[in-house]
Simulated assay, not measured.
Amino acid sequence: QSNQETKILLVMDQGFYDLHTNLADEIKQWFTFHKHLHLKNIFIVSGGEEIKNSQDTLQSIWNEIHQHDICKHSFVACIGGGSLLDVCGFACATAHRGIPLIRIPTTLLAMDDSAAGVKNSINYFHKKNFIGTFTPPYCVINDIKFLESLGHRDWLSGIAEAIKVALIRDSAFFHYIESNDNLILNRDKDAVLKLVERSAELHLNHIASGDPFERTSSRPLDFGHWMAHALEQKSNYSIKHGEAVAAGIALDVMYSFHAGFLPEDECNRILKLFRNFGFTIYYSYMEDIIHERKNNQVKAMEEFREHLGGELTITMLEGIGKGMDIHSIQLAVLIRSLQELKIA
């Protein structure tokens, strides 16, 4: 926009940095060939869900923005998983009322789901994503090579979110995942590239064409998440987000069948796919969750409603690729669904 240098602050996940020890030097070298860009600092910070449970990481990023005079004509680039992208995104959205953010995700879940979105947040009052904003990133850069060092549990977490969006939006994509489960599980590059591209595309299309700032009560992209969020919290985040999403989806798929929405053969196909990938689809915590009450409602559902606003709206399935909204839950059907999931 001018002859002035553009300042960039780079925030990087500590775990990723430790696995890619030459990356920081390579980044610094790259900037020597782009004189119009001024790399102010590479700030290394811890990642993982736990950084969202306090303001420490958020405040440290704000401090970096302040110390290095990062302004609205500067950029912050964040290299990390979904949790760090969340916290860094919130820091950028609130500092100077908005600093452009470049998201560079390093996990499958972030690449195929959260990095394509417009949300950022931290947890508060022991509630997931209680404080946050809707702020689109300046851009998202997905580099599949960054997934080579990803651990198995984080790999599965990303697969869960791809299955989720396929179930509510695209039966052909579900069939693709189903037909290529071994290739995806074994990290075949072409199969993974298609998984990331289609999943991110479906997430982005929904956001762009529907309700990007969540003014209504319907949240199809949160399919399975009423249980998932409670499961993460109940386990003190020892269960990863994608793992919790897989169990939450499995429960809602079973409920959709027993409530008469979803054909039995499609229910069985979905549960079989989760099993093929090695997901745990039942946790004992789920028993406690469905029996806790708040305002005469399952507590987790009521807190999910409070977070979304408006009337209770839960996404269920009437077919693979066909989500539907319901506004009340039959507790007896929910309990039966969980018991059958336990032995499935």
Rank of each mutant, 00 (worst) to 15 (best):
V196M: 07
D265T: 10
N180P: 00
M227A: 03
H206G: 01
H258W: 14
S217N: 04
P220E: 10
K234H: 04
A244P: 00
W226K: 08
D252Y: 05
N182K: 05
I207Q: 07
E264N: 12
T216I: 09
E214M: 08
F213I: 08
H258D: 14
D181H: 08
H225L: 05
Y255L: 15
D252T: 13
M227Q: 05
D190S: 12
W226R: 05
V253T: 12
D190A: 13
A191P: 08
I239A: 09
A191E: 06
S256C: 11
E266A: 15
A200N: 10
L221I: 10
Y255W: 13
F213C: 07
A200I: 00
L185F: 15
K240P: 00
I184N: 09
I207E: 07
S217F: 10
N236H: 12
I207S: 02
G210W: 13
K194Y: 08
L185W: 05
E178C: 07
A200C: 01
S217C: 12
Y255V: 13
R187G: 03
A230H: 08
G224W: 03
A244T: 01
K189I: 15
A247E: 14
E178V: 06
I207R: 04
N180V: 07
N186W: 06
E266Y: 10
A259H: 07
Q233G: 00
A200T: 04
G242I: 01
R219Q: 04
W226H: 12
Q233M: 12
G242E: 01
E264D: 12
S179Q: 04
H258I: 14
E201L: 14
E266F: 11
S209F: 10
V253L: 09
L262Y: 01
E178Q: 13
V196E: 02
K194G: 03
I207L: 15
L221N: 10
S199I: 07
D265C: 02
D211I: 09
N236K: 15
H241A: 14
S218V: 03
A200P: 07
S235C: 07
E178L: 04
Q233V: 12
G248N: 08
L204S: 10
A230C: 07
E178H: 15
I249F: 05
H225W: 01
H241Y: 02
A246R: 08
A244F: 11
E201C: 08
L193H: 12
Y255S: 03
R187F: 11
G210S: 12
P263E: 10
L185M: 13
V196L: 03
E201S: 10
F261P: 00
A246E: 06
S235G: 06
E197P: 03
S238K: 15
V253I: 07
D211L: 14
N186D: 11
S256G: 08
D181E: 02
D265R: 04
E264Q: 09
N182W: 02
V245F: 01
E201I: 02
I249P: 07
I184A: 05
V192E: 04
P263R: 14
I249M: 15
E201K: 13
G224P: 00
P263S: 09
I239H: 06
Q233W: 11
H241I: 11
D181L: 00
A191N: 05
L193I: 11
S217M: 13
D188E: 11
F213T: 11
P263N: 14
N205R: 15
P220W: 09
F223I: 02
N180F: 06
F257I: 00
M254E: 15
I207H: 00
A230G: 07
E243A: 15
L202H: 04
F213K: 05
L202T: 08
